[in-house]
Amino acid sequence: MSEFLFLRNEVAPAMIRGVWMSIKLIVPSAVFGLVIGIITGTLRVYGHAVLKSVANIYVTLFRGFPLLVQLYLWYFGLARFGIYFSPYTAAVIGFSLCSGAYHSEYIRGALLSIKEGQMLGAQSLGFSKTQALFSIILPQAVRRALPGCGNELIYLIKYSSLAYMVTCIELTGEAKILASLYFKYMELFLIAGAIYLFLVSIATWILNHVEGWLAVPGFEPPRT
């Protein structure tokens, strides 16, 4: 009975708080990351020389630094220059920029896989390059990049647990606090892990539907 009370009075509220914070971290980071990724990926293929190198430097830095180091820099490092972010803001900035760098790589690969003829076909009808990019090239590239970007979103769900390291207490943080308080590491981290698994399953389900919804006959290899 005491186990039940412990679950009801201690674990459940903490986990609900934690999941809610995790979702508040994941959703905006996913959206910003994807937008940043599409913009930088496009610049790296079609941008002018200067923008192209800025985008390349960004990707090199944010894929090269460990995410935890990036979070420390945003939260603790910038404080030295009088720039203070809340733990939540620092985490969302860190996740978005890191995620964007990875997305940009998937987008870049997808853009390069689109045949040159698609651009020529559009230009021959009087499309400007920019118009062709938005109406013809990107809609195809995003479809091609979707499996990769989906994978990155799944990663994001799990690396959101690093927010706890900059004192933004989300699911892992709540589990850690309770676990050390009651010395029940195995139980609490199994529960937290199961909740992450559940979040990942929901994301996978959503991504599958988006893929199916955007599918064009013959454009992608048939899905299994």
Binding site: G117, Q118, L120, G121, A122, Q123, S124, L125, G126, F127, S128, I136, P139, Q140, R143, V216, G218, F219
Partner: peptide
């Protein structure tokens, strides 16, 4: 240029249809 290209239709050897449409 864009106005001119509308006036001069181009047919390509490998069609160049937009694959997602």
């Amino acid at each position: 240029l864009y106005a001119y290209r509308q006036k001069v239709g181009m047919i390509f050897q490998d069609f160049n249809l937009f694959d997602h449409l």
